[in-house]
Amino acid sequence: MASRGSAVVMTLYLLFLLVPIYWLVNMSLKTNAEITGTFSLYPLNPTLNNYRVILTDSSWYMGYVNSLIYVVMNTALSLAVALPAAYAFSRYRFLGDKHLFFWLLTNRMAPPAVFALPFFQLYSAVGLFDTHIAVALAHCLFNVPLAVWILEGFMSGVPREIDETAYIDGYSFPRFFVRIFMPLIASGIGVAAFFCFMFSWVELLLSRTLTSVNAKPIAATMTRTVSASGLDWGVLAAAGVLTILPGALVIWFVRNYIAKGFALGRV
């Protein structure tokens, strides 16, 4: 294949991906007067003031804290329940296993919009409305099936002889699972955790519906920039840039497994 052609294609594609992000960063470094007044490809008088607004106002930065809390809770919860289930699916046949697996798949297909209202009522009824755990539980709807699939794919790559040898050596199931099996699929666990983190982090509809003040996610806080005096573009852009950062940081560690993870461990 002509590698120069490839380089051109990739350059164009990456430009297409990065220019809109650059524009957001560009805006976040300008004052509102500069954003609306002049049109420039780079900030003429770069300012970090927009970031200062967010990082010094607790109603702003608590949005990030809230988001991170429920995302971490959701990731831990999803992995904790998905690990044994994925092991069961990858190692045994049991009554109704295929149906159960397919039924889990259908939950990944369920539009969050369908669940928004019933979730709201369910969590209000049990007194969990506007708590972090409510959002964490709600996001299990799509993250648990995802984690089960990814882990099942990775676990199926581990030969079953290892399990059998460990049992012959006298390991109990919990000890074998934690001490021997989990280290073997460490990369799979990492990838599953990454995907749970990601899908919980990017979701807005459910997290917005289930919170009002105490657990309000950053994504919902961003609508605050609309006020009587018009839109605060600079702060909006800065808040957007700050939401991109966590993902950009963790992505480097899983770069070689991203594709495998999206393929649910089945490449």
């Binding site: 990456l14 992000i21 805006m27 990601m198 852009a237 957007g240 991109i244 070689n256």
Partner: peptide
């Protein structure tokens, strides 16, 4: 290859409302 992978995955990790905001502004 690593760099391209990371850059390509970037849009996938942006919260969906921020994706909307980016394009609304853009």
């Amino acid at each position: 290859a690593s760099l391209v992978l990371v850059l390509m995955a970037l849009p996938l990790l942006i919260p969906w409302n921020v994706v909307g905001t980016i394009w609304q502004v853009f």
